[in-house]
Design a protein around this nucleic acid. Structure first.
Lengths: 231, 231
DNA sequence: CGTGTGATTGACGCCTGTCAACGTCTGTGG
DNA sequence: CCACAGACGTTGACAGGCGTCAATCACACG
């Protein structure tokens, strides 16, 4: 199932990282890209794959993770509307170092390596934009590293709730708009599933959240921030 | 104390990240940069500082760290010959997110922001080179994140020994060519100083290493890799 | 020789991972 | 419509890894 939207009409391309593309760049990109629908559970690419392009997320959510000891997955990031995925391998010309799995039906645009590198070579503003994006990700990664290394599991879980509610917003009832299994929550912060379960129900007892299956309702965000040790 | 070496004669500039600079770029850089000596213990820049340039390490070792809970430092990286530091803040136009402290007398070249951004705007190859560097760092950070999150303190310490012996080589006797306090080792892997001390002496008992003060002699690298759970 | 920083060691106990059993829900096939 | 399998969630028991606290030692420096 292939949908070739016109890049000129794509508000993601126009606004975000691609906002510095000129008319002719957009035209070229439009011809060379291709847009696909991915169902929940689909693997976009696997760790170790040779990549010949990168993806831009139109809609849906894609989970990026590394496979660690004994197959345990370490979640690196949830990519959503406007995010690029797989660019690292294209740019550093290495094999994919993460796996990308769809956790909410997604529409992704595929941009071939040559298109990307062509843009980078000819458009300094675009290039700088990408550079800034990678720098921001680098800082996020380092910050999270420090948290994982220094905080208790309890603090980390609370912090993840804060981060997720910033990234995915809450609906009118305060329910977090991303649905994760307890195991996935555990794989973000590097702990056991059972620990997540126990801590979540402690948070519930503390009136910080309410739980209805995978739905997490944020009741007391400041309280959560406090238990996360964030100022 | 200022030393203005000529960039043309600097083998770091010629070889590494700057290898794609043209004659005229080098000349310009030579005029605009300045080279300083920093003594052990000196702070190059502080977390939160506004940066108006970045540094290239000529010699010595600079420790980059973030300050976390209750002032506990989380070491992100040891920068050495040929490495750039402080570039992230310059590129993403944000305040410094790490502190850079000299742990071995160092000579650093300061490159003003405008010089750097000028090069990025006009030299696509250079720009791409920088992009690749940041991508590599990003992957390193993510990989280390996964390790910290999933491995035991024992495994992490062993892994750090492996990484350090790759980055800083061993002298003819197998002694690691970087001198760190137990606390610094602890601050790399996110544990308590006492744990590092105990584990190091266990490693010694297991004939993996020998200790003479801060000197760590690697005896059985494969054994260390095994306890680090690396293949 | 006093002071300070770093290294060591021991005691203690909590946090957290592991194992196991069981409950719940959903989808599938008979 | 029911039975069953499989994935996920929950709870309890238990041990041990690792953090914390405190005391002591080693060494360098003014």
């Amino acid at each position: 199932m292939v949908r070739n939207n016109n890049c000129k009409d794509c508000d993601i391309l126009i606004r975000s990282i691609f906002k510095n593309l000129k008319e002719e760049d957009l035209k070229k990109m439009n011809l060379e890209k291709s847009c696909n629908i991915y169902k929940k559970g689909a693997i976009v690419y696997h760790e170790g794959n040779r990549m010949n392009g990168l993806f831009c997320v139109n809609s849906g959510i894609v989970k990026l993770y590394k496979t660690g000891i004994e197959g345990k997955e370490q979640i690196i990031k949830f990519a959503r509307r406007g995010h690029l995925i797989g660019y690292r391998s294209v740019l550093s010309e290495e094999l994919a170092c993460t796996t990308a799995k769809v956790i909410e039906d997604a529409s992704l645009c595929f941009i071939p390596s040559e298109t990307m590198t062509g843009l980078l070579k000819t458009n300094a503003d675009f290039s700088f934009e990408i550079l800034q994006m990678v720098c921001r990700e680098l800082d996020e990664s380092n910050s999270f590293l420090a948290d994982i290394a220094q905080k208790s599991v309890r603090e980390r879980l609370a912090e993840v709730l804060v981060i997720l509610s910033e990234q995915f917003e809450l609906d009118k009832n305060g329910v977090l708009q991303i649905s994760l299994t307890r195991e996935e929550l555990a794989n973000i912060i590097g702990t056991a599933t059972e620990s997540v379960i126990r801590l979540l129900s402690e948070f519930k007892d503390d009136k910080l959240i309410e739980l209805q299956g995978r739905k997490i309702k944020i009741i007391n965000l400041n309280g959560i921030k406090k238990t996360a040790n964030l100022y």
